[in-house]
Amino acid sequence: MRRISALVLAAASLATAAGAQDVTIATAQGEATVPASPEIVVAYDVAAIDTLQSLGVELAGVPDNLYIPSLSADGAETVGTLFEPDLEKLAGIGPDLVVVGARSAPALNAVSQLAPAIDMTIGSELLEDAKARIAAFGTIFDRQQQAEALTATLDDKIAALGDAAADSGTALILMTNGTKMAAYGPGSRFGWLHDVTKMPPAIPELAATENHGNVLTHEAIAEADPDWLFVLDRGAAIGEDGQSAAQTLASPLIEGTTAWQNDQVVYLPAAELYIGGGGYSSLVTVIDALTEAFGA
């Protein structure tokens, strides 16, 4: 305990010395004041790591698994997991700023004892929150022009997807988890896919508040008869072995739907959508995959 306490005091002293100038930015818990242009940064949220790396920010510490191969942890120390920071390692780094979000958000109070910390969770208003996080990180690291360029590119890609998906009928967003299936409607965790494609849901009465989705059967999907199926394979997203989404969907009922018959089943980039949702490059990857599917 004495060693941890000493490390906490040392890290706090370093953070105080680094905070010569501060900036105020929007976070998931309201406005927060943090050191400007922090040099030693640790992030525990994959979406935040994604956006920070897209802005060219180097990280001193990251969780043990980023799940998305395109996110590089080269040069960064492993400082715990997405769910549980290693406080001793974190204190040893002496960060100027710690970023948490989503799965790591409950650790905000703990890491705040070691350094200035912010919660950059991206909520159900995914696109709005994603752009707000890009702007906030741009302000913190004095990279406003880069942040504006990322947002402009994102807006262009969203517009192109909307044009490509115009008049394409209904869509059903499905997540498979082994043999289980759940659907998501507008306003839900993955409802932003309806926003960017401008496609109405094949099942209008889906509850928007279901974080784990609305449980569906093959019969219900066949009855809804979507024009397009957008499919997320949760097992693939987290690297689990087991039945794939394609195997779960394979049945005469689903194979009889308009989506299946017209080859309009889109298997979305799983880790980018499920783990990195709202991170800049993850958003671009998912949007590009949908645009390509409609172009085909």
Score class of each variant (00 low, 15 high):
residue 5 S to T: 14
residue 7 L to N: 07
residue 8 V to G: 11
residue 9 L to K: 13
residue 10 A to V: 03
residue 15 A to H: 08
residue 17 A to E: 07
residue 18 A to F: 11
residue 18 A to Q: 06
residue 21 Q to F: 15
residue 22 D to H: 15
residue 23 V to S: 04
residue 23 V to C: 04
residue 27 T to M: 05
residue 29 Q to G: 12
residue 30 G to E: 07
residue 30 G to D: 04
residue 31 E to G: 15
residue 33 T to W: 00
residue 35 P to R: 11
residue 42 V to Q: 00
residue 42 V to K: 00
residue 49 I to Y: 01
residue 52 L to R: 12
residue 57 V to P: 07
residue 58 E to W: 00
residue 58 E to L: 12
residue 65 N to R: 11
residue 65 N to S: 09
residue 68 I to Q: 09
residue 68 I to C: 01
residue 74 D to F: 12
residue 76 A to L: 11
residue 77 E to S: 08
residue 78 T to C: 03
residue 79 V to C: 01
residue 86 D to W: 04
residue 89 K to L: 06
residue 91 A to R: 00
residue 94 G to W: 03
residue 102 A to G: 05
residue 102 A to P: 09
residue 103 R to Y: 15
residue 104 S to W: 14
residue 104 S to L: 06
residue 107 A to N: 00
residue 108 L to H: 06
residue 108 L to N: 01
residue 108 L to R: 00
residue 111 V to P: 09
residue 116 P to M: 10
residue 118 I to S: 03
residue 119 D to S: 03
residue 119 D to E: 04
residue 120 M to K: 01
residue 121 T to P: 02
residue 122 I to R: 04
residue 126 L to A: 01
residue 128 E to K: 15
residue 133 R to D: 12
residue 136 A to K: 06
residue 136 A to E: 05
residue 141 F to E: 14
residue 143 R to M: 05
residue 145 Q to T: 15
residue 146 Q to V: 02
residue 148 E to D: 14
residue 151 T to Q: 13
residue 154 L to V: 07
residue 155 D to T: 11
residue 155 D to V: 02
residue 156 D to I: 10
residue 157 K to G: 02
residue 160 A to Q: 08
residue 166 A to H: 01
residue 169 G to D: 08
residue 171 A to V: 07
residue 172 L to I: 05
residue 173 I to S: 07
residue 177 N to F: 03
residue 179 T to G: 03
residue 186 P to L: 11
residue 187 G to P: 07
residue 187 G to T: 10
residue 187 G to W: 00
residue 192 W to K: 00
residue 193 L to E: 06
residue 195 D to H: 12
residue 196 V to R: 00
residue 197 T to D: 03
residue 197 T to Q: 01
residue 199 M to F: 00
residue 199 M to D: 08
residue 199 M to Y: 00
residue 200 P to S: 14
residue 202 A to K: 03
residue 203 I to T: 11
residue 211 N to G: 09
residue 215 V to G: 14
residue 216 L to F: 12
residue 223 E to G: 13
residue 224 A to F: 15
residue 229 L to K: 10
residue 229 L to P: 02
residue 232 L to F: 02
residue 232 L to H: 01
residue 232 L to P: 08
residue 233 D to G: 13
residue 235 G to H: 14
residue 235 G to S: 07
residue 237 A to V: 02
residue 240 E to Q: 14
residue 241 D to Y: 09
residue 243 Q to F: 00
residue 245 A to L: 06
residue 246 A to Y: 13
residue 247 Q to V: 02
residue 247 Q to T: 12
residue 248 T to G: 06
residue 249 L to V: 04
residue 251 S to W: 06
residue 254 I to W: 12
residue 255 E to N: 13
residue 257 T to N: 12
residue 259 A to E: 10
residue 266 V to R: 07
residue 267 Y to F: 13
residue 268 L to P: 09
residue 269 P to I: 05
residue 269 P to Y: 08
residue 273 L to S: 13
residue 274 Y to F: 13
residue 276 G to S: 07
residue 280 Y to W: 11
residue 281 S to D: 08
residue 282 S to H: 01
residue 283 L to K: 12
residue 284 V to W: 03
residue 284 V to D: 14
residue 284 V to A: 10
residue 288 D to M: 08
residue 288 D to F: 06
residue 289 A to E: 10
residue 291 T to K: 09
residue 293 A to N: 04
residue 294 F to W: 05
residue 294 F to S: 10
residue 295 G to S: 13
residue 296 A to F: 13
residue 296 A to S: 15
